[in-house]
Amino acid sequence: MSFDPADPAFLADPYPVFAALRAEAEVHDHPGLGLAVAVSHAASSAVLRERSLGRLWTDAAPVAAFAEFNLLHRNSLLESEPPTHTRLRRLVAAAFGRGHTERLRPRVEALAAGLVEELAERVDADGSADLLAVLAAPLPIQVIGELLGVPESERGLLQPWSNAIVKMYEYDLAPDLAAAAERAAGEFAAYLRTLVAHRRAHPGDDLVSDLVAVRDGTDRLSEDELVATAVLLLMAGHEATVNVVGNGVHALLTYRDQWELLLADPALLPSAVEELIRFDAPLQLFERTATAPVTIAGHRVEPGAKVAALLGAAARDPAVFTDPDRLDITRSPNPHLGFGAGIHYCVGAPLARVEVSAALKALTARLPGLVGAGAPERRPEFVIRGLEELPVGV
């Protein structure tokens, strides 16, 4: 048994297919994807943590056509292994550790409240509005703009760049979309080089200034590494938050009892955030490449071969999650793998949690009567799972 990642029926609800696969075995070869896929929580966790499975970057081909995209990824924290990863993670974590999440928390909550107020006004005027366009998409862009010190007037550039670049992570991408991703990578890198130069001369309280300044003895980030880090933060931070908010609010409005439960008890907000990340994972697949022979749940992976953790499948494993197909915002513990595991655990996870929490807090406070206003349109992609739009009303 396998699955077609382009099948609209599968994309609409992949979880029954994952359950059927998991009932057969924990790991399966997927010839169409050209790799093995882990579908249990234990096997997916092993894929993410096993040190004989690494993030080994292979340039997108033809190399000459993807010079900017490849440059960003060759210098990325996400696409490196020790000792390079250890060095980059130490420097980036030191810059992030200068209180940026807590510094931004009041601003994130104010931004979310303002966007929800705009959503309410549009619903009042038109009867319905697209929650993705008004809240879920602009919130992380504004937050990342604040984090990086991008002037507010220029933040409109960020979302189109992110949307274009992340298409490269899908399988069988159309040539025009691949070319658009390369253009976006070049434009974003050029923009960031200008921003870095400005912050070298005029440091502020933003993350770019801290990335410029951070030192470990005589070691520091190169300009290419700094630019790659900023691009990674945009793409990972934007896509994850947009889709947790979009998928999550859709789930809450579908399982109305959980929305009502959150309204009645705002103290459930932290566990609700974790459950929304688990229930409909924004990132469905994360690849690793074997550097030595390794066996995952009885499945042997030879050096050079790829294996992926199917995070959405892991999140519905009944061996770990009681009644896994039920949305339960009181679920605890909730050991989902939505932010990864092992050395590549998401460095921006605390900020992502703040953003999702702020969006839910503002929505429940301002629009307690929120309802769906028609069937949402799902994006036709598998790896990054999200909605094109989420119409809502009251």
Rank of each mutant, 00 (worst) to 15 (best):
F3D: 02
D7A: 06
L11H: 03
L11C: 02
F18T: 00
A19V: 04
H28F: 00
D29L: 01
D29R: 14
G32S: 03
G34H: 07
A36S: 13
L48Q: 01
L48A: 00
R51F: 00
R51V: 02
L56W: 11
T58R: 14
T58Q: 11
A61E: 15
P62R: 07
P62W: 15
A64I: 04
A64M: 09
L71H: 10
H73Y: 10
R74N: 04
S76W: 02
E79A: 15
T84E: 15
L91C: 07
F96H: 15
T101Y: 04
L111N: 03
L119I: 08
E121C: 00
S128D: 14
S128F: 08
S128M: 11
L135E: 04
P140G: 06
L147M: 11
P151F: 03
S153I: 03
R155E: 01
L158K: 08
Q159F: 01
Q159R: 13
Q159W: 00
Q159V: 00
N163P: 03
V166S: 03
K167W: 12
M168L: 13
Y169N: 13
P175H: 11
A180M: 13
A181M: 09
E182C: 03
E182M: 01
R183K: 15
R183N: 05
G186A: 02
G186S: 07
E187V: 01
E187N: 08
F188P: 03
Y191D: 11
V196K: 08
A201F: 09
A201Q: 12
D205N: 15
D205V: 04
L207F: 12
L211N: 06
L211H: 09
V212N: 00
D219R: 14
A228M: 06
A228D: 00
L232C: 07
H238K: 12
H238N: 15
T241H: 10
G248N: 06
L252Y: 01
Y255R: 13
Q258D: 06
E260N: 08
L262G: 02
L262W: 02
P266V: 10
A272L: 05
E274K: 02
F279H: 11
E287G: 05
T289W: 02
A305I: 04
G312P: 05
R316D: 14
F321I: 09
F321W: 14
D325A: 14
N334I: 06
G340Q: 08
Y345M: 06
G348Q: 09
A352E: 00
R353F: 08
K361L: 12
G369T: 10
G369C: 07
G374F: 10
P376W: 10
P376Q: 11
R378Y: 12
E381H: 15
F382S: 06
F382C: 08
V383W: 09
I384R: 06
R385Q: 07
R385N: 09
E388K: 13
E389H: 13
L390E: 08
V392S: 09
V392P: 03
